[in-house]
């Protein structure tokens, strides 16, 4: 009684595309709302520090570079909640799509 259904299943799966993708060569499409690496728009930022104050993971520090205070996101600490984007009054933080964030040094983990 169970053999016919078994055969049907076998046939259906023989012709099916695999459920997996070959990752480094093939990538799954990301959703519109995906939260990847930050994109900081320096021209918009006025250095108010709201993102640093609100960050749940304490990943953002305000640094003064050439007289302009602006945030630095430490991706090693970041939990990618994007509360900073929600809270930035100037829209200076944007969600990026980049998710391959591994790096050889900690310095490269900081988004400026």
């Amino acid at each position: 009684m169970r053999l016919p259904s078994l055969i049907r299943e076998v046939w259906a799966n023989l012709l099916k595309k695999p459920a997996t993708v070959k990752y480094p060569f093939e990538k799954l499409p990301l959703s519109k709302t995906y939260r990847g690496k930050h994109e900081l728009m320096r021209d918009r930022c006025v250095g108010c520090g709201l993102c640093a104050k609100i960050c749940p993971a304490f990943a953002i520090t305000m640094r003064s570079v050439y007289g302009k205070v602006s945030p630095e996101v430490d991706l090693a600490k970041c939990i990618f909640c994007y509360q900073c984007e929600d809270v930035c009054p100037r829209g200076a933080i944007k969600r990026g799509k980049e998710y391959e964030l591994a790096s050889w040094s900690r310095n490269e983990m900081i988004v400026r």
Partner: peptide
């Protein structure tokens, strides 16, 4: 996997959804 894709579509991440906040939802 398909459920996680749905969660990613709605909330922006597969597992850590960061969806509920005090006062409602984020998206």
């Amino acid at each position: 996997e398909v459920i996680m894709d749905l969660i990613e579509m709605i909330t922006g991440n597969r597992v850590m959804s960061a969806y509920n906040i005090i006062g409602g939802v984020r998206r």
